[in-house]
Simulated assay, not measured.
Amino acid sequence: LVNNAGIQFVAPVEEFPVEKWDAILAINLSAAFHAIRAALPGMKARRFGRIINTASAHALVASPFKSAYVAAKHGIAGL
């Protein structure tokens, strides 16, 4: 399983649309969790599998106006 999804929106926090925040977290972080959850039973049954979660430099270093993307990629690094 390779989790490599990512979307981006750039705006200051006070102007960041809530629906964009929710979409970025859903696609960039929650989707990886759901994919892992779906793939694990088959991997365990076969006693084999690999999970690769791809983040970006933003998993380690923040950038201005990218709060949701940075938060999601930090989450991917932790996942």
Rank of each mutant, 00 (worst) to 15 (best):
V2I: 10
V2L: 08
N4A: 14
N4C: 13
N4H: 07
N4T: 10
A5Y: 00
I7T: 12
I7A: 08
Q8E: 14
F9L: 14
F9V: 11
V10R: 15
P12E: 10
V13S: 13
E14K: 14
E14H: 06
E15C: 06
F16C: 13
P17H: 09
P17D: 11
P17I: 11
V18E: 14
V18D: 13
E19K: 15
K20A: 15
W21T: 14
D22P: 06
D22Y: 00
D22M: 07
A23E: 12
L25T: 08
A26C: 04
A26H: 04
I27V: 15
I27N: 13
N28V: 05
N28L: 06
N28M: 08
S30L: 07
S30W: 01
A32V: 08
A32P: 12
H34L: 14
I36W: 01
R37H: 11
R37I: 00
A38I: 01
A39T: 05
A39D: 05
A39V: 09
P41A: 06
P41G: 06
G42K: 06
M43S: 12
A45M: 10
A45G: 05
A45V: 10
R46N: 13
R46A: 15
R47G: 10
G49H: 07
G49T: 08
R50G: 10
I52P: 11
I52A: 04
I52D: 04
N53H: 08
T54W: 01
A55M: 00
A55I: 00
S56Q: 04
S56H: 00
A57K: 12
H58S: 12
H58Q: 15
A59Y: 01
A59D: 03
L60G: 06
V61E: 05
V61T: 09
S63T: 07
P64L: 08
P64M: 03
F65R: 15
A68H: 03
A68F: 02
A68G: 09
Y69I: 08
V70K: 03
A71K: 01
A71W: 02
A72C: 05
K73Y: 01
K73C: 07
H74T: 02
G75C: 07
A77I: 02
G78V: 07
